[in-house]
Amino acid sequence: MSSIPTLLILLAGLFILLQFAPGDTVDALMAQMGGGDPAQAAELRRFYGLEGSAAVRLLDYLWRLVRLDLGFSAIYNKPVATVILERLPATLMLMLSALSFAFFAGMLLGIVSAQRVNGWADTLISLLGLLFYATPSFWLGLMSIVVFSIWLAWLPPGGLYEIGSGATGIWLVLDIARHLIQPTITLALIFLAIYLRIMRASMLEVSTLDFVRTARAKGLTRGEIVRRHVLRNALLPMVTLIGLQAGTMLGGSVVIESVFSLPGIGRLAYESVVQRDLNTLLGIVFVSAVMVICVNFIVDLIYARLDPRISAGA
């Protein structure tokens, strides 16, 4: 419930911030079409509802929001809700696959690292992690396209699916999966590096705690200790991180969606800013905020599951 005022402040703040951005959506359109005359511009401003003061338009927007009406998109000539719904699946698929890949791969590598602290495997993994963390994702994406799509021709260089192939059912799913391999890995690598380091540190810390010593004294094998005692406790900071990174990942998807020409929310947001499409941008912020709130809610639930000391009642 506490998230509703946050949401309102966010939307009103963004609305006001955007009033300071010079130019409106008609100016952006003039740039796109190479100019036009003043009568046409005035007509278009009327059409896009850009008359009236900012305060009136803000109140109007908030009132529409109460009725769950996100308004009309200037650049797409469609209701904002429709535009966002069309774009949501690509972003969700990309985010979920990247997040799970980063989480599980990061966890595994972190465990391996922690088991062989300062060994060659640990050094190699840490080095790779640092490398992934330091590489800008747009560059990584483009290089991966050059290698895997142009030289080796194994994977498609972009798009969500093969246009006009007519594939349905399982074939369409496989086609989309094939198209998502490169963007997922590119987006995930930087997060993987973070998960890896957190997991490694967390494993090392938990291993020194008393209950682990007790377990060892009990005569449990090394594998059993890691699986049953260390892992579960070491996962808590990892889960926290998921909640924090859901928002960051939405931001990162702008770059990935552009490089791999995926029809997602990130590219839509960028396009809306450049074209000053206020309704669409506010709609995206609204939907993203709701998404981040949902992820954090789920994270809270997982917490309680992992650590019985944290419960919904306590």
Partner: peptide
Amino acid sequence: DKIVWRFITDKAAATAAIEAGQ
């Protein structure tokens, strides 16, 4: 029979799509 226009906003990605024959 058919023309498909693909929106590729990233210029470098567009070059890649051309080189890959897409």
